[in-house]
């Protein structure tokens, strides 16, 4: 059975590694990207099953990424955003742009895993 592909966009290497480990252990194939530019380049070539992205990233923020995916790529793939800035404005902007879920730091990797699996089951 083919593993579901997750694009994980996170600039903090340690956290990215931790989440990557947890998601891989959870049965997903994780494509790890460190900044928005890398994500954008990769997205032009292929689309994952789900995207987990930090809001605060270099070059290209998570909200801009959502906007790009929804309006430029015209894709409806599930997007889960992670941010330490859990202010209302950011959350609302993300949801307005078309984000599916939002998780704030400190992140519980187990919780993230549950949310990812929930979004994928919704997609199915």
């Amino acid at each position: 059975m083919k593993k579901r592909q997750i694009l994980l966009a996170e600039d903090d290497a340690m956290l990215a590694s931790l989440l990557n480990y947890r998601l891989e252990k959870g049965g997903y194939e994780v494509i790890l990207k460190n900044d928005g530019k890398e994500v954008k380049t990769w997205l032009n070539e292929s689309l994952p099953d789900i995207i987990v992205s930090d809001i605060m990233m270099p070059y290209f923020s998570g909200i801009e990424l959502v906007d790009y995916i929804r309006n430029e790529l015209k894709s409806s793939i599930p997007i889960i955003l992670i941010s330490s800035a859990s202010n209302e404005e950011n959350v609302l902007s993300a949801f307005e742009m078309g984000a599916n879920d939002f998780i704030s730091k400190p992140v519980s990797p187990s919780e993230l895993l549950v949310r990812v699996s929930r979004e994928i089951s919704r997609m199915n």
Binding site: L18, S84, K105, S108, P109, S110, E111
Partner: peptide, 8 residues
């Protein structure tokens, strides 16, 4: 600082 729950 970045993790919570059982991981923490």
């Amino acid at each position: 600082k970045d993790v919570s729950g059982t991981t923490e």
